[in-house]
């Protein structure tokens, strides 16, 4: 993981189109998302999404654009969640040979 990364934590409505909206926003605005984790919350009406993004001066604009999405309920920086991405990265590494 590079030093200049941070995590945004979103609460979003849980329905089939939401990931399209999030990923589409990043693609068309030219924002680079390095990693995504998405899990449903209890009751299933909402999901939590963690986005691993570059921590640079475009962040404010990214957050502003995310807040405009109707399916996004909350957006907060959550830099501590980087260790969650580290754990997932360890999990998906191919097993060492021998």
């Amino acid at each position: 993981m590079q030093a200049e990364q941070t995590v945004l934590r979103l609460i979003v409505r849980n329905h089939p189109g939401v990931m399209s909206h999030l990923c589409g926003l990043f693609a068309r605005r030219g924002f680079n998302v390095e990693g995504i984790l998405c899990v449903p919350l209890e009751e299933g009406a909402c999901s939590a999404v963690l986005l691993l993004v570059a921590d640079d001066r475009r962040n404010a604009q990214i957050v502003a654009q995310l807040r405009k999405l109707e399916d996004v309920i909350e957006v907060h920086p959550d830099p501590g969640a980087r260790r969650t991405f580290d754990a997932v990265a360890r999990y998906v590494q191919p097993a060492a040979p021998g």
Binding site: G17, S20, H21, G24, R28, L69, E70, D71
Partner: peptide
């Protein structure tokens, strides 16, 4: 229509 709507 995701990229060209306010919402859909």
């Amino acid at each position: 229509t995701v990229p060209i709507t306010k919402h859909n």
